[in-house]
Design a protein around this nucleic acid. Structure first.
Length: 418
DNA sequence: TCTGGGGTCCTAGGACCC
DNA sequence: TCTGGGGTCCTAGGACCC
């Protein structure tokens, strides 16, 4: 019989930071967003002393951080990605069918003859990931993805592994489970369910009027209902290529000049294009935006627009030009801009792209891009890039508390003193 | 002073076709 | 009074996730 496990890393970013810092064991740790603007990850020790509200502004937390002697880190995404890959590789030893759902969690298909084998498998996943990577995880095992999510949530109270497969166990779990905590039910949907008197997952599972659920929550909600009943709607998916990709950042200060915005958007375009090429895809569309700081009083402006490429491309030069074309349309003088971004859309595999018969310049600078990618792979990201991105990039974000790139940079390897 | 970034899927409604 | 019917494709916006 086939089941699936949802393996989820505990406070992933914080746990990454702790791997090479044994002195932080059992200590409160928080990780900040880009720009050190907001707190985005917390260990359970940090939650215990009152932290834990996602995206709370860091400047509001500083006093509390001092008071409780909390270790604070800027986010170090290259490092987290590397640890994530290591965790996923451990899981691949358990099953050929692993769906990496996000940086810190994966669904793993498992086949057993008897359900009594499920819990030991979950235990082994946990211990192997801890042994090989040093990452604590929780494992939830059940029949469908939505039920796995429920099981995973409960795993914290069961030493990290919870199996939910018999009807009775499932109903017992769902009876206590608020609708808002169901995977895919956000606050809006939960309020709507409340209006028809559905407050727990069990009530949703047993609600007879499927058509009403469909009407209130669309197809999405209907499928969640079936998943609660153990009926598969959300299948294991192969990690396919991204359908959209992009890059955006808040700036270190309010940016006022078009020259600086051109640099920033060129950099975002460069990063997006590199992601596109790394999955061997090309795109037909690009959109870009800039906006003022919504937290500041005063007039606000959100500018956004898009362009279509006459033939699909992953050429960094064309993509930067596209972003600049959008900027010309959306830039307004007199505002201080706090954030900008570039998104690539209508992405297709490079070998499936249609060539436009009347396109003036269908050839990309493929060789140039290849060389750029090669150099940046060998010597590190950003070793070579378009001068349009600027040199100093003063608008860039701030990272005051960045940890070392322990596993992704030779210069940051851990030092051992003898 | 300081408030994240990167995604997915669904639906309604407009544009267009014959 | 009364103004086709049936279909496809695309996009903006909403909702959700980590």
């Amino acid at each position: 019989m086939k089941y699936m496990a949802l393996v989820d890393c505990n406070s992933f970013y914080c746990s990454c930071e702790k791997i090479f810092r044994p002195d932080l064991r059992n200590k409160p740790v928080i990780v900040l967003s880009n720009n050190d603007g907001a707190a985005i990850a917390f260990t359970k020790e940090a939650k215990a002393v009152g932290f834990g509200q996602m995206c709370e502004a860091y400047f509001k937390l500083k006093d509390k951080v001092k008071q409780h002697n909390v270790a604070v880190f800027s986010s170090n995404y290259a490092f987290y990605d590397d640890i994530s890959k290591r965790v996923m590789n451990v899981l691949r030893a358990f099953s050929p069918n692993v769906e990496v759902y996000s940086v810190d969690e994966a669904f793993v298909e498992i086949e057993v003859d008897d359900i009594s084998q499920l819990e030991p498998i979950g235990r082994r996943m946990r211990s192997e990931i801890m042994r090989q990577v040093g990452m604590p995880v929780g494992v939830g095992i059940s029949k469908t993805k939505v039920l796995c999510k429920v099981a995973n949530k409960l795993s914290k109270k069961h030493n990290g592994v919870k199996v939910l497969v018999t009807e009775k166990d499932i109903d017992d779990a769902l009876r206590e489970f608020p609708t808002r905590d169901i995977w895919g039910i956000g606050s809006r949907s939960a309020s709507k369910l409340h209006l028809i008197n559905i407050k727990t997952a069990l009530e949703m599972k047993n609600f007879k009027d499927d058509k009403l659920i469909q009407k209130v929550l669309t197809k999405v909600g209907r499928e969640i209902q079936d998943e609660l009943r153990g009926i598969h709607c959300l299948n294991m998916e192969n990690v396919e290529d991204k359908k959209n990709t992009g890059n955006s950042r808040s700036f270190g200060y309010d940016v006022r000049t078009k020259r600086e915005l051109r640099e920033a958007l060129a950099q975002f375009a460069t990063n997006s294009a590199a992601k596109l090429r790394s999955q061997n895809s090309v795109c037909y569309g690009l959109s870009a935006y800039i906006h003022t700081n919504p937290f500041k009083p005063g007039p606000q402006y959100f500018g956004e627009d898009h362009v279509r490429f006459s033939s699909a491309t992953s050429d960094v030069i064309k993509i930067i030009a596209g972003a600049h074309e959008v900027l010309e349309n959306i830039y307004r003088t007199g505002y201080g801009y706090k954030k900008g971004g570039v998104l690539l859309s209508h992405i297709v595999p490079a070998n499936q792209a249609q060539v436009d018969l009347f396109c003036e310049d269908p050839t990309d600078n493929n060789e140039v891009n290849k060389v750029i990618d090669m150099i940046n792979k060998k010597y590190g990201p950003q070793t070579i890039k378009s001068a349009a991105c600027g040199i100093g990039q003063p608008w860039k974000t701030i990272h005051d508390y960045k940890s070392h790139h322990y596993t992704t940079d030779w210069n940051d390897l851990m030092k051992v003193e003898l």
